[in-house]
Write a protein that binds this DNA or RNA. Structure first.
Length: 249
DNA sequence: TGGAATGTTGGAAC
DNA sequence: CGTTCCAACATTCC
């Protein structure tokens, strides 16, 4: 469920719930005072990267689905919901296995929308500055850095690095600026393709590298390794993906 | 069927 | 005190 485009789909799906008033809130979240929600009207929904927000007057609820989180709209699963919102017209939203948090600070103060790959306010220039400020950082880590590419996840990382032919262990400082700009552009571009294909239920069909064993360009075996600070799966081709690795200071 | 996976956090360890 | 490491969380699929 997690990467940015999936959260955008959720946001679109719940749009009809804007303006509805909560009749009853339930769920097994311990971090939320559910009694506060009854009688409150949803003023809208927002997303930042992999975060989803239900906005009320004066506060919002942040939901992060982590690896396993799911949701149901006007349906429910047999397992207990983390957060369950029943509205005055009988409709309902249910969220499972996610992190839920009550936020009182304005979202504009907490989040830099220019960092969100899916947001119209995303700034390629800002992203470039952030990449250039961390010459020692590995490409595979940069692609997962939510301060730089909010919403990018492991699938997007593998697909983008393959598409732009950059080896995941490349150092940012050794990558030509033009290539960094390509990384940024393709992260945005692929994220929207991800969104399109996910809606069509054809996302996996379009993977070129993620979970793949053979490079479609060179017909040689992909390397599979757990790389970077977070040791996440990387699928890459040592023939066509360039390792930029000159020393940097 | 045990292990791994679209992820992040917080606290321990160093 | 800053950085790094790792358990914890919790679901589904192969």
């Amino acid at each position: 469920m997690p990467e940015g485009p999936s959260i955008v789909i959720l946001k679109e799906q719940v749009e009809p719930f804007a303006g509805k008033t909560v009749a009853e809130a339930g769920g097994n979240s311990k971090k939320l005072d559910l009694d506060l929600l009854a009688g409150k009207t949803v003023i809208g929904f927002k997303s930042f990267g992999k975060n989803f927000f239900i906005c009320f007057t004066g506060f919002s609820i942040r939901i992060h689905f982590m690896l396993f989180g799911t949701y149901r709209i006007n349906q429910h699963k047999d397992t207990p919901a983390r957060l369950s919102l029943h509205f005055d017209d009988g409709s309902e939203l249910n969220f499972y296995a996610c992190v839920v948090q009550h936020i009182t600070q304005p979202l504009d103060e907490l989040y830099n929308w220019a960092a969100d790959v899916m947001n119209p306010a995303f700034s390629a220039a800002e992203a470039l500055k952030k990449l250039q400020a961390k010459p020692q950082m590995l490409a595979c880590d940069a692609m997962l850095d939510q301060q730089i590419f909010a919403g990018s996840g492991n699938i997007i990382k593998n697909e983008v690095l393959f598409r732009i032919r950059v080896h995941p262990l490349s150092r940012l400082g050794a990558i030509p600026q033009q290539k960094l700009e390509e990384m940024i552009a393709e992260t945005v571009n692929y994220s929207f393709e991800f969104l399109h294909w996910k809606k069509e239920f054809t996302l996996k069909k379009h993977w070129l590298a993620h979970t793949k064993t053979i490079c479609p360009r060179d017909d040689v075996p992909f390397k599979k390794a757990h790389l970077g600070k977070t040791n996440r799966r990387s699928f890459f081709c040592e023939v066509c993906q360039v390792l930029y690795s000159s020393s940097v200071h």
